[in-house]
């Protein structure tokens, strides 16, 4: 993966550019403030060093002069909030796509891996039961539920079609995890007991990393998976090949036994 470097990773989602522009603006401002301030500070340190015969200038400045830099900071911050943070936050975290127009994927985190579930042709996620959880059935999927029969469950591998909205329902089986895909600029905690929605629209075909970004135990650093963003045809092909691996639905004859 040549996606990473000494600066920000490559951008692979529709909102990555929006987040990066914020990072650039803030860092440019920060460096500007620091440099100007550093020049002034150095000037003061040299100019007002102790010298024989040079008296201290005692006149009081008004208390207000120190508030001028504050005012500038405030104006900058208000601008940042009103014109950048509020609208961008609204579109990235507060507005979720309609499940009808989006691919819906369920990601369930556990110590120390990711389970990715696609609803299958019926578009519905089937029932899960905690008592059915087994190493061969990490989600405890109840295959007797008709909606569950066609669900596709994959470990540590998420395939997504390019240029399509994806709604991810994030869950956790045990402790707090965090789904982080650096190239998407996507990060969200997986909170046990809650189903946290998040969305992304990948816009670049490629192979990315899904890492856990919240301390989740001794194997935390091993908790990672791969994200493959593919063309729609490749994605459909992959999904079909995966569906073929599902156990055959129970037939009438086997039930009669």
């Amino acid at each position: 993966m040549n996606n990473y470097g000494w600066g920000l990773p490559i951008q692979a989602s529709t909102f990555a550019g929006q987040i990066d522009s914020g990072l650039w603006i803030i860092h440019a401002a920060m460096i500007g403030v620091f440099v100007l301030w550093g020049i002034f500070f150095t000037y003061l340190l040299i100019k007002y060093r102790r010298r024989d015969g040079v008296a201290v200038r005692h006149e009081e400045h008004g208390e207000m002069t120190s508030l001028i830099p504050d005012l500038l900071v405030m104006v900058f911050e208000i601008g940042l909030i009103v014109f950048y943070a509020l609208p961008a936050w609204r579109s990235i975290k507060m507005t979720m796509p309609d499940p009808k127009d989006a691919l819906v994927v369920e990601v369930t985190a556990e110590q120390f891996g990711w389970n990715i579930r696609y609803p299958g042709p019926d578009g519905k996620f089937g029932r899960t039961k905690p008592e059915l959880v087994h190493f061969s059935n990490p989600l405890g999927l109840d295959r007797t539920d008709p909606a569950a029969a066609d669900d596709i469950v994959v470990s540590n591998e998420m395939h997504l079609p390019v240029n399509a909205k994806v709604l991810i329902k994030l869950r956790s089986k045990d402790v707090v995890h965090d789904l982080f895909v650096p190239e998407f600029r996507l990060k969200q905690d997986a909170m046990p007991g809650l189903e946290t929605p998040m969305w992304v629209e990948p816009n670049r075909i490629g192979h990315y990393e899904m890492a856990c970004a919240q301390l989740c135990g001794f194997g935390h650093s091993l908790m990672r998976g791969d994200v493959y963003v593919e063309s729609r045809e490749d994605f459909d092909k992959w999904l079909k090949s995966r569906a073929a691996l599902n156990p055959a639905p129970p037939t009438a004859s086997s039930e009669g036994f």
Binding site: F41, L44, Y48, D70, E77, L80, A85
Partner: peptide, 30 residues
């Protein structure tokens, strides 16, 4: 959004303290 706004507000008094400390150097005999 609420905590974003309060966080930006708290930077105002912090900046004021630092500014005062730097302005204190002006005209001094360090």
């Amino acid at each position: 959004n609420f905590f974003l706004v309060t966080t930006m507000i708290i930077s105002v008094p912090s900046v004021a303290i630092l500014t005062c400390l730097i302005f204190s150097l002006q005209g001094g005999s360090i």
